[in-house]
C-alpha cells in the first residue's frame, strides 16, 4: 500500500545506504585492497539483485549467469580489440548479445516446460558448454588470455589503473537494477512472475502467458549479466574462457536463495554481507592454506540454508519491524504501520 509513496521509511533507509556507499571509497581511496574488495562486492550485488528477477520472482532456478556474463565480456572486449569500439557502447552491445542468447536458450526450454531441477541442471551445464566452445574458438583467443588494450584514452577504453571509477559505475548500475527490480515487482510482469513461480497451470488459466513472462524475466536478467560482463572484462583487463564460471554462477543463485527468494533486498543483502565476509576470510586466511577461506564460507552458506531456509531478508525484516514498532511507540504511543514487502 505504501509502496507507492516515494519517501517512505524504506526508501529513506535505502537513500542513506546509497549515500554511505558513495562516500566510503573516498575514505579508502589509497587502499587498493579495500577498493578491490568493494568492487567485487558490488559485482556480486548487481548480479544477485538481477538474479532475483528470474530466480526469486519467477522461481526459475537459473544457474547460467556465467554464460551471460562471459558472452558480455567477450563481446565488449572483442569489439574494443578488433574495432576500437569503446566499452561504454560495447557493454550494452554485450548485454544485447547475452539477451538474444538467453532468448534462443529460453524459448525452447520454457516452451517444453523444462523447470525446477531440470532447468537448474540445464542452465548450469550451459555455462560449461559455453566455456568449452570459447576454449575451442581460437578467433577470440581460445585458451590464451587476451589482454585489453588502452585505445585513445583510459576513459574511452574504460581502462583505469584504480578501481574507483569501476566502483562508481557499478554503483550506478546497482541503483538502476534495484529501481528496475522494484518497478517490475509491482507491475503486471512482477505479479505474474510471483504467481507462476508458485503454480504455473493456475496462473495460465488466469490469462497469463507463463512462457512469455519467464522469457522476459530471463532476458532482462541476461541483459544485466551481459553489461556486468563488459565491465568485468575491463576491470580484469583481459578475456579468458574462465569467465564462463560454473562456480560463480551457482554462487549468485545461492546468494539469491540465502538472501531470501523474491525479496529485492535479500540477494543484495546476502551479496554485501557474505561476499565481503568471504573476501575478508580470503585476506586473513588466504596466505597459508589455499581453499580454507572457501571451506569456511561454504560452512556458513550451509548453516544459513539449513537454519534460515526462508533466507536472511525475513530475519532482518523482523528485526527492522521490531525497531520500527519500538520507535513508533516512542513517537506516537502506538505501533507504526508495517509494510509487507
Amino acid at each position: 500500500m505504501n509502496s507507492k509513496r516515494l519517501l517512505n521509511q524504506r526508501n529513506l533507509l535505502m537513500l542513506a545506504a546509497l549515500i554511505l556507499a558513495a562516500l566510503v571509497p573516498l575514505a579508502f581511496r589509497s587502499d587498493q585492497y579495500a577498493m578491490i574488495l568493494m568492487t567485487t562486492v558490488l559485482i556480486y550485488a548487481v548480479l544477485a539483485t538481477a538474479w532475483n528477477i528470474i530466480g526469486g520472482m519467477a522461481g526459475q532456478l537459473d544457474l547460467a549467469m556465467g554464460a551471460y556474463l562471459g558472452l558480455g565480456a567477450f563481446t565488449a572486449g572483442t569489439l574494443l580489440i578488433r574495432w576500437s569500439i569503446t566499452p561504454w557502447i560495447g557493454m550494452f552491445l554485450g548485454g544485447l548479445v547475452s539477451m538474444l542468447f538467453a532468448m534462443l536458450i529460453g524459448f525452447p526450454l520454457f516452451g517444453f516446460k523444462i523447470k525446477e531441477l531440470w532447468y537448474a541442471l540445464t542452465s548450469s551445464a550451459l555455462v560449461t558448454v559455453m566455456q568449452v566452445i570459447f576454449l575451442m574458438w581460437n578467433g577470440v583467443g581460445g585458451p590464451t588470455e587476451v589482454y585489453l588494450p588502452t585505445r585513445i584514452s583510459p576513459l574511452y577504453s574504460l581502462r583505469f589503473n584504480t578501481y574507483m571509477p569501476y566502483y562508481y559505475i557499478l554503483l550506478v548500475l546497482l541503483v538502476v537494477v534495484i529501481i528496475f527490480n522494484n518497478r517490475i515487482r509491482y507491475s503486471k510482469l512482477g505479479y505474474s512472475l510471483l504467481a507462476l513461480g508458485e503454480d504455473e497451470d493456475a496462473v495460465e488459466v488466469l490469462g497469463v502467458n507463463s512462457q512469455a513472462s519467464k522469457l522476459k524475466a530471463l532476458m532482462i536478467y541476461a541483459f544485466v549479466c551481459g553489461i556486468v560482463g563488459g565491465l568485468y572484462a575491463c576491470i580484469y583487463g583481459y578475456l579468458h574462457p574462465s569467465f564462463f564460471s560454473t562456480n560463480m554462477s551457482t554462487e549468485i543463485a545461492i546468494l539469491g536463495i540465502v538472501g531470501g527468494l523474491g525479496i529485492t533486498y535479500g540477494p543484495l543483502l546476502a551479496a554485501v554481507l557474505l561476499v565481503s565476509f568471504r573476501e575478508y576470510l580470503r585476506a586473513s586466511l588466504g596466505g597459508g592454506m589455499e581453499g580454507l577461506y572457501l571451506a569456511v564460507y561454504a560452512v556458513i552458506l550451509i548453516l544459513i540454508a539449513l537454519f534460515q531456509p526462508r533466507g536472511l531478508a525475513p530475519l532482518v525484516n523482523s528485526g527492522y519491524r521490531k525497531l520500527q514498532t519500538f520507535f513508533g511507540e516512542l513517537r506516537h504511543g502506538k505501533p507504526a504501520d508495517v509494510e509487507s514487502h
Binding site: E198, D201, A202, G207, V208
Partner: peptide, 20 residues
C-alpha cells in the same frame, strides 16, 4: 485449491485482473 500460497489475497486477485 491451487492458491498462490506466498501471495496476499489482493495480489492474487490482481494477477487475474490484469487479464483485461
Amino acid at each position: 485449491t491451487r492458491a498462490f500460497l506466498h501471495m496476499t489475497v489482493e495480489d492474487t486477485v490482481r494477477v487475474g485482473a490484469y487479464n483485461r
